[in-house]
Amino acid sequence: MKIHLKVWRQKGPEDKGCMEDHTLDDVSSEMSFLEMMDVLNQKLIKEGHDPVTFDHDCREGICGSCSMVINGDPHGPQKATTTCQLHMRAFKDGETIYVEPWKAKAFPVIKDLMVDRSSFDRIQAAGGYVSVSTGNAPDANAIAIPKLTSDEAFLSATCIGCGACVAACKNASAMLFVSAKVSHLDLLPQGQEETHLRTQRMVAQMDEEGFGACTNTGSCSAACPKEIKLENIARMNRRYTGSQIKSS
């Protein structure tokens, strides 16, 4: 297939950046989107140009590295699919595809399509854990956890930290990410002890990083490649309000 690309190029954080046009004549429908980008990069290098920089690693939809806004949608047109899992069969021969980076104040561009998501790590450091040092654990079967509870916690824990939720939100809010983490631990007995403090601190860090407010449009969950549910946000809000009351 023939594919026309309009790709965001930006030399560094200070550069203004612009879209650049490229055409690839020989794209196979079996290729993944990133393999198509590889083909573009090989071509650029051979022609003496700088290849397009983008984050990627596992190429299986689990590490959360890949992060492209494709035709306006974070991770492209397919539901529950990361950029690396998207295949060219999802596009038409002759189609023009727009490729851009995540855009959010808290995710500054490093180069081209690569952004800095270290704000997520700082949120995690602000309480996204159970305080149990190695060696202190009781037998794993000492407490039974109802299967449904555990499954629910698992579903929140499958967040890959890619940031598509932020990229999809008109306010660049990180509520879905933070609430997924909070919910995972809040649902489990192990996480109960610190749940109020954890929620407060993680929310405070999120605000400090410059993420926007949540206005409940739900575009985050719709864009999430792991289908993290909006209920997480409601659960966190309840917990947050509860923790405010508790600490006042």
């Binding site: 149990v132 654990a137 555990s150 631990l185």
Partner: peptide, 10 residues
Amino acid sequence: DQCVAQGVPF
């Protein structure tokens, strides 16, 4: 044991 204590949802 350690992983379960951390909240790993096995």
